[in-house]
Write a protein that binds this DNA or RNA. Structure first.
Lengths: 210, 210
DNA sequence: CAAAAATAATGAACAGTGTTTATTAAATCA
DNA sequence: TGATTTAATAAACACTGTTCATTATTTTTG
């Protein structure tokens, strides 16, 4: 009775093929080149077939968001090696920003786009990776507050403040708002303004120069 | 020779009519209901006609961004009445966030969307209102730093940090990221988490409770 | 005033998009 | 083999932005 199993496996394989192609298209040509029809022609199936494996485009984008979190996790690997919570917080911020600027399409999908969240709401799915990253930030904030001997600050609020700041930086940078406000800030990475702001954030929050 | 003038005026009138309808559609039904064809049918002209008055949709969105800044300026009126720079900074943040959450479509156009910026780059136009608002923030930061007797902080970096934080909050809130990270934070306005974060920002930056 | 030139507006097409449904082809079951 | 279930698709629907040749309309000129 291995027939049903093979069938199941083949179904999963096509599903994965769709997601693979989707990831490929986003990586090579960006979000707005990703279309159902484009995926279909690339995997040599009809567009309608895709709807046998995903209920709509939002579901595919939701899955793509997860692929993005995999990339982010990979790029954050060595952050965990840092023992000082203060310096770790700084490194988290730095690699978060770096990721957001170097992988604009993935970043948008994960933190700035409505579609994947629509799927979550509609299907009562979860934003698991997002929550996990935030909780890690919260606990690192708690450690850092202790390390800097700073009291009277809620670690959860602090985490949200830090997240908002770096997210804001990435978002403003990616949508060309920084380039215009400050000419020194050339498009893309190595914008001195962003580094200075991150350092300033650490300084104002913990009275510690990193 | 008032003929050429009347012609000119009529051209401007149709141009303004297009922008007016665009604004109406965004206000009533949101950004993604705004289409060239929709505007065309509403003003009872053919879609092609619109291209005699605007070079593409990006230019219309650029103009819409400006309309958005008008709304923001209007909602920020009474902020300037506050004499304390510290409290003024807080009020700026508060009304910025309020505006961003209550006018999601306008906010996205102004601070989170690529299209209007494309037009700026392509046509060497200016993001005048955006720069003006940022410069006002910078000078208020300078005042506030003096008021709080805080030294060793660059007012420009500080302004960017504050902008990033509030922009981040609005952006995360509008794209449903906060609702999920914290259940207490119901969608839309009066999210206690946002208020607390804004207060925490003021406290960490100036050691002053507002 | 009539003919010519300039201007304004449009119909129709191009090249896309997401999604649905009735139909056909293939594989499995009895 | 024939019936039934499953998988895939062609075709259509309702949209999108944009372009261009063609048709009114208006203005200018002889």
């Amino acid at each position: 009775m291995g027939l049903a199993e093979r069938k199941e496996r083949e179904k999963n394989e096509l599903r994965e093929l769709i997601l693979l192609k989707a990831k490929e298209i986003i990586s090579k040509e960006g979000q707005d080149k990703l279309s159902i029809r484009r995926i279909a022609t690339e995997i040599e199936y009809s567009p309608a077939t895709i709807y046998l494996y995903f209920q709509d485009k939002d579901e595919i984008l939701y899955q793509m968001m997860d692929k993005g979190f995999e990339i982010l996790a990979h790029q954050m690997q060595d952050v965990y090696l840092e023992t000082s919570a203060l310096r770790r917080l700084f490194l988290i911020g730095q690699s978060y920003i770096r990721f957001g600027i170097e992988n604009q399409d993935w970043y948008t999908l994960m933190f700035n786009s409505a579609s994947p969240m629509n799927h979550i709401e509609r299907c009562k799915s979860e934003w698991g990776h997002g929550i996990a990253i935030f909780e890690y930030l919260v606990s690192t904030c708690r450690e850092a507050l202790a390390e800097a001997k700073r009291t009277g600050i809620d670690e959860r609020i602090l985490a949200l403040q830090m997240w908002s700041t770096v997210h804001g930086l990435v978002s403003l940078s990616n949508t060309q708002r920084l380039t215009i406000v400050d000419g020194n800030c050339t498009t893309g990475m190595d914008c001195p303004l962003i580094d200075l702001t991150l350092e300033n954030m650490m300084f104002t929050l913990f009275n510690h120069k990193i």
